[in-house]
């Protein structure tokens, strides 16, 4: 017999479905209201929501505070961007050991972005996950900074100036031009990831990951390969963040090292915490909230960081459930 889900979980489902309905309706409503120019902003929010939800798997469920997810986001963006750049310039992306050409096909570029970011996450995770707590925070931050300098070192991609992209990717030979197609791609990716992640966090893998957060020694004693479970979670999380980066690159038509910076990593953490860690939907809400706040505040004053900073402080000190916890009236986390 399955126990009935607790009320806040049921409320969560309702809220998530309501959110999905709003997002599906948004392009039509915005077009009808002559506000279609807001769609690129929504696409950006969806992409950051995807990145934040990916981080939540590691941070919220795994209890591993990664301060380096900007590196995965940026790597995905640069892989997607570089493929477009080389396709436009008709030069190979890589000459050695195998020759790889640029590509405008989204079915090649997006998986490639996820694969590259995932591989990077695997390497960084394999070293960083040997440590705990504060060490892990500092090491992920430091490795992300290393990736930042590595990308800056490639002369082809414009260094600090970034790289303008001549086109967008094409999906099934249809260009992702205009605002709507890319919005739908971002929405499908986000919903797909949330569905899979939600299930796997309730399944054996997710339970093991959460168990390791609560009591690592006991999980070890039970015979769970804690390191391997965490490494898998970290790798997947990095790959999905890379996917989010590929969307961002297409949306902006531009990639810059700013995407790889430690500020980006910090913002992703803020999104997760603002929305509510360990809830998957919360971080998406957090991403929407933070970007909205940024948009509104920066229109009012250039010193909007002076508002964001104290707000974040207040959040940490007094408002620990996050927005999602508020929405579904969940019992306080931890």
């Amino acid at each position: 017999m399955r126990e009935p889900a607790p009320p806040h979980v049921r409320r969560g489902w309702i809220a998530a479905q309501a959110g999905l309905a709003v997002l599906v309706a948004a392009p039509f409503v915005l077009t009808a209201l002559d506000r279609a120019w807001l769609l690129p902003t929504l696409t950006r929010m969806l992409a950051y929501g995807l990145g934040a939800a990916a981080l939540d798997v590691v941070l919220g469920y795994g209890g591993l505070v990664s301060f380096g997810h900007g590196a995965f986001l940026g790597t995905g963006a640069y892989v997607a961007g570089a493929l477009i750049h080389h396709a436009g310039a008709a030069t190979p992306l890589l000459r050695w050991p195998v020759e790889i050409d640029g590509s405008l096909d989204a079915l090649i570029a997006f998986p490639a972005a996820a694969l590259a970011a995932g591989a990077l996450a695997f390497l960084i995770g394999a070293v960083s996950l040997r440590t705990r707590g504060v060490h892990f925070i500092m090491i992920t931050l430091a490795f992300a900074q290393m990736v930042y300098f590595l990308v800056l070192a490639i002369p082809e991609y414009g260094g600090t100036d970034g790289l303008m992209l001549p086109a967008r990717h094409r999906l099934f030979d249809l260009p992702l031009d205009g605002d709507q197609p890319l919005y739908w791609v971002a929405l499908v990716l986000l919903v797909g990831f949330l569905t899979i992640a939600q299930r796997s966090m309730e399944a054996r893998f997710g339970l093991a990951l959460r168990g390791a957060r609560q009591n690592e020694r006991r999980m070890r004693a039970l015979g769970y390969p804690v390191f391997r479970i965490r490494l898998v979670a970290f790798t997947i999380s990095g790959a999905v963040a890379g996917l989010a980066g590929a969307v961002l690159a297409n949306q902006a038509g531009f990639v810059s090292p700013d995407l790889l910076s430690w500020q980006r990593s910090g913002e992703l953490i803020i999104m997760v915490i603002l929305g509510g860690q360990g809830t998957l939907f919360g971080p998406v809400l957090g991403a929407f909230a933070l970007l909205l706040l940024e948009e509104e505040l920066s229109a009012v004053t250039e010193h909007w960081m002076l508002v964001l900073g104290p707000l974040l402080l207040a959040c940490v000190l007094f408002f620990r459930r996050g927005l999602w916890g508020q929405v579904v009236r969940a019992p306080a986390h931890g």
């Binding site: 910090g266 953490i269 803020i270 915490i273 960081m305 002076l306 964001l308 900073g309 104290p310 974040l312 402080l313 959040c315 940490v316 000190l317």
Partner: peptide, 8 residues
């Protein structure tokens, strides 16, 4: 998070 807010 709190000290990150301080940086900002």
């Amino acid at each position: 998070l709190a000290t990150y807010a301080l940086i900002l």
